[in-house]
Computed example of a mutant assay.
Amino acid sequence: MTTDELKISTIPLLTMNDVSQVLRNIILEHLAMKKACAQSWDEIFAALFHIEVKGWHLVIFNDCGEIDYCDECISPDGPRWSFERVGCDGLDPILLLRIQEQAVLEQLLQHL
């Protein structure tokens, strides 16, 4: 194992439930999000969209104007969750949100 691999493996990980709760807090508490990329949600159309909320960094895949999945979430103190680590087996924090919560999140993203 290389030094870089060792460093990566010792970083604490967030769970899918942790990330889902962050998303829920954004929705319910109306936390101010800011985009962390040059383009708006509507301009991206089908790509990764980066946002920041109170030190959290989240990456959500925009699929033709709709939320597809959460790609990554990094907490202010370092622990992270990554879609890459769990693979494409349906383990996505957005799936833990109710349909109404997903709709509100999508509206919030469209207004950035």
Rank of each mutant, 00 (worst) to 15 (best):
M1Y: 11
M1H: 13
T3G: 10
E5H: 11
E5P: 02
K7P: 04
I8W: 07
T10M: 15
L14V: 07
T15A: 05
M16A: 13
M16G: 06
M16S: 13
V19I: 10
V22P: 01
L23H: 01
N25S: 13
I26W: 01
L28C: 09
K34P: 05
K35W: 02
A36P: 02
A36D: 14
A36S: 12
S40P: 02
D42G: 12
E43K: 10
F45G: 01
A46Q: 14
A47F: 06
H50G: 01
E52L: 09
V53M: 03
W56T: 00
L58R: 04
F61Y: 15
C64A: 11
Y69D: 04
Y69N: 05
Y69A: 00
Y69E: 08
D71G: 00
S75M: 07
D77I: 14
W81Y: 03
S82M: 10
F83S: 10
E84H: 11
V86K: 05
V86P: 04
C88Q: 13
D92A: 04
D92H: 05
L95D: 11
L97Q: 03
I99G: 04
E101Y: 05
Q102F: 01
Q102K: 14
V104Y: 02
L105Y: 03
L105E: 02
Q107T: 12
Q107S: 15
L109C: 06
L109G: 03
L112C: 09
L112H: 06
